[in-house]
Design a protein around this nucleic acid. Structure first.
Lengths: 346, 346
DNA sequence: CTGAAAGCGCTAACAA
DNA sequence: TTGTTAGCGCTTTCAG
C-alpha cells in the first residue's frame, strides 16, 4: 500500500502547479519558483510547496515547460546501428554524459538507409531537441541535412561526417590510424596486405581506405586493387572478404580490417580455410571492441577512445548551445595501435 | 543553397500553424486538420496548405501537441545496460517496432544502480510517455515502481520483472531453459556441473539459479553449493567464476552460465588455466549473442528469441494504451537450446 | 517576497 | 467545409 496510491486514489483532477497553488493558497508563479529552488522565494514557502508537491505526487510536465521556454532538455541521437558494440558503447557514454546535464536521449536508428534517416531526422526535429548528435547513414549528401541548418539546432557529427555542412564534428584520425596499422604489418615483414571493408559511402570508409593506400606507399609496398575488398563493416563482409582475397593468384599474408567486426568475420573465414590468425596469417582490426581482447587469438586493433569521442561531442554541442555563433569546429582524436596476438611475423 | 534556407533566411518569426494560416487566409484549425490529412478538409485546401507548409519549412511542434492531446508519442525505455549485446539487440528491435507506430524512444540507463534508476524513472515520467518499457535494476523493490501506478502509464517489464506490481511482463522460460541446459550436460555424461553467475537481485538470476538446481535434481545429480558462483552476468565474473570452481577439491567438468558474456569470460579463464572449452571442458551460455556462433569454439547456448520478446512487449503496451482496464498479463516465451561445439562428452 | 496575467503552439468542441 | 474560441501546464514579466 504505497503512500502515493492513497493520495492519488480518487484521481480527482491531475496534479498541476495550479492544484498545488490552490491548496496552498498561493499563486502558480510562487509554486513554480519554489519547485525550481529560486532564491527569490521564502525558505518557508519553498519547503511548504515541496512537501505538498511530494504528497500530491506532482510530476513536472516537460511538454508544457518546453513549449513555454523553448528548451526541451532532449538531445536527439541519430545513429545507424547500435547493434555494433562500438556504437553501443558510444550510446552508453552519451546517455550518461547527457543525463549529467539533466537531459535525455531521444533515439533514432536507420541502418544505412537514407529514407529512414530522413524520417528519423524529421521526427527528432519535431521534439525540438536542444541538440542533435548524428552519425550519418552511408551515402548521405549535404542536402539530406540542409533542413537542419535553419533550425539553428546545434548539430554535431560523431565519427562519420558529411561534407558541405556547417556542423561540428568529432572523429578519429582515420588515415593516421590505418597508416600505422599498415606499417605495423610491414614491419613484421608482410608484403601482401589486404584491406577488408571500408565503404565509399561513408567518410570513415573513404578515409580508412585512403590511409591504407598511403600506408602501403609509406612502406614502399605496391598497391594491388585485387587485395581490396570494400563494403560496410559487417562480420559477413569479413568472412566473404578473407575468402575472396585468399583465392587471389598471389594471396596476402595479412589483412587490415575496417572494423573489429570485420576482423572477427575474417578470423572465422580463415579458420574455415584451415588457417589461423596469429599462426599463419595476421589480422588487424579497428575500434577495440570489448570482445577484441578476449578473442582467440586476441585481436591487434586500433583504438579510438570512446569516452573522449563522447566527451568532445557533448562539449561541442554544449558550447554551441551557449554560443550559437561559434565557428565550425572539427576535432580529430589521435588513435592508438594495440598490438595483441593476431599479428605475427610473415 | 537550399530552398529552406532562402525562405527562412530572415528568421522573421517562427513557422507555426498561425503563420501558415495567416498567409493562406484560413484558420489555424483548418491548417491543423489539413496537415493531419483530415477527411473533413477540402482536397484543394489540403494541398495548398501542405505546399505552403513545405515551402515555409514548417516543423510540427510535438511539445505543443503533447500538451494539448496528452499523447507524447514517446515510449520511455529504462534499461540497465545497452552495452550488453543482448540488450543492444532488444533496444534495436524496440526502436524499430516503436518507430513503426510513429513513436520514438526516450532512453534511460542505470546499470544496476537503484538511485540512478529512480532518477531515470522520474525524468521519463516528466515527458509523459505513452508507455514505458522497463528492465529493472538488480535489487529493485515494488516500492521503487509504485509511483508509476497512479500515472496510469502502460508499463511492461521486459526480461526482468519485479513482484507485487500490476504491470505486464514478457520474458523467457528461464527455469525450463536451465533445466534443459543441465540435462544436455548430464546426457553428455557430466556429473559435476557448475553454475556461473545469476544474481539473487534479479528475477532472471533467481530463476536461472533455481532452474539449474531443479535440472540437477531432474537428472539425479547432487546439488553442491561449492559449484555455484553467483553474481551479475559479466565477462569478469565468468573469468573469476571458472577460476574459482576449478580450484575446488572435486572440480566440475562442465559449467552452465548465466549469460553468453559470462560464458565468454569462462572460456577465457579456462584457457588461462591451460584448458579449452569443447576439448576438455564443457560450457553452456545463455542469450545467443551474435558472437556466440563465431567464438572458438562456437558456444552452445540458450536462445530467447529477441524479436518475439520485443514484438510481445510492444503488443502488450499497445493493447493497454487502447484498453487500460485490461488484466495483468505475463508472457513467457519458450527458449531453445542451441548445441554447438563448446559442449562435449565428459 | 508574492500575485496577476499573458502566452508558448497546438487541437477539439461548437458554430456558422 | 471552415472559423471561433478556449485551454492544455508551464514560465515570465511586471506590479504590488
Amino acid at each position: 500500500m504505497s503512500r502515493v496510491q492513497e493520495t492519488l486514489g480518487k484521481d480527482q483532477g491531475r496534479v498541476t502547479l495550479q492544484a498545488i497553488a490552490a491548496r496552498l493558497d498561493v499563486s502558480t508563479a510562487t509554486v513554480s519558483l519554489a519547485l525550481r529552488d529560486s532564491p527569490v522565494v521564502a525558505e518557508t514557502t519553498r519547503t511548504r510547496v515541496r512537501k505538498l508537491a511530494e504528497e500530491m505526487g506532482y510530476i513536472y510536465n516537460r511538454s508544457a515547460a518546453a513549449l513555454r521556454t523553448d528548451r526541451s532538455q532532449i538531445v536527439g541521437l541519430g545513429i545507424n546501428d547500435i547493434t555494433n558494440p562500438y556504437f553501443a558503447e558510444l550510446l552508453n557514454l552519451l546517455e550518461e554524459a547527457v543525463g549529467a546535464q539533466g537531459r535525455s536521449i531521444l533515439l533514432g536508428t536507420y541502418g544505412e538507409s537514407r529514407p529512414r534517416q530522413q524520417r528519423v531526422l524529421r521526427t527528432l526535429k519535431e521534439y525540438r531537441p536542444d541538440g542533435l548528435i548524428l552519425c550519418p547513414a552511408g551515402g548521405s549528401t549535404a542536402d539530406d541535412f540542409a533542413g537542419l541548418v535553419p533550425t539553428r539546432i546545434p548539430v554535431v557529427f560523431l565519427s562519420r561526417s558529411v561534407d558541405g555542412l556547417p556542423f561540428d564534428f568529432v572523429g578519429g584520425d582515420e588515415m593516421g590510424a590505418m597508416r600505422t596499422g599498415v606499417r605495423h604489418l610491414a614491419e613484421l615483414g608482410h608484403r601482401r596486405i589486404a584491406m577488408l571493408g571500408g565503404s565509399d559511402l561513408t567518410s570513415t570508409g573513404r578515409e580508412r581506405l585512403r590511409g591504407y593506400r598511403e600506408g602501403l606507399a609509406d612502406c614502399g609496398l605496391p598497391h594491388d586493387p585485387d587485395l581490396e575488398y570494400p563494403g560496410y563493416g559487417t562480420r559477413e563482409l569479413g568472412v566473404a572478404g578473407i575468402t575472396a582475397v585468399l583465392e587471389r593468384p598471389d594471396p596476402p599474408s595479412a589483412a587490415i580490417c575496417f572494423s573489429d567486426l570485420v576482423a572477427f568475420g575474417a578470423m572465422l573465414g580463415l579458420r574455415h580455410a584451415g588457417r589461423e590468425a596469429g599462426r599463419d596469417f595476421s589480422i588487424v582490426g579497428y575500434d577495440d571492441n570489448p570482445e577484441a581482447a578476449l578473442w582467440y587469438p586476441a585481436l591487434t586493433t586500433i583504438r579510438v577512445p570512446p569516452a573522449e569521442m563522447v566527451a568532445n561531442a557533448v562539449g561541442l554541442m554544449h558550447s554551441r548551445m551557449a554560443e550559437p555563433g561559434l565557428p565550425q569546429r572539427r576535432i580529430i582524436l589521435p588513435t592508438e595501435l594495440i598490438v595483441r596476438s593476431s599479428t605475427i611475423p610473415a
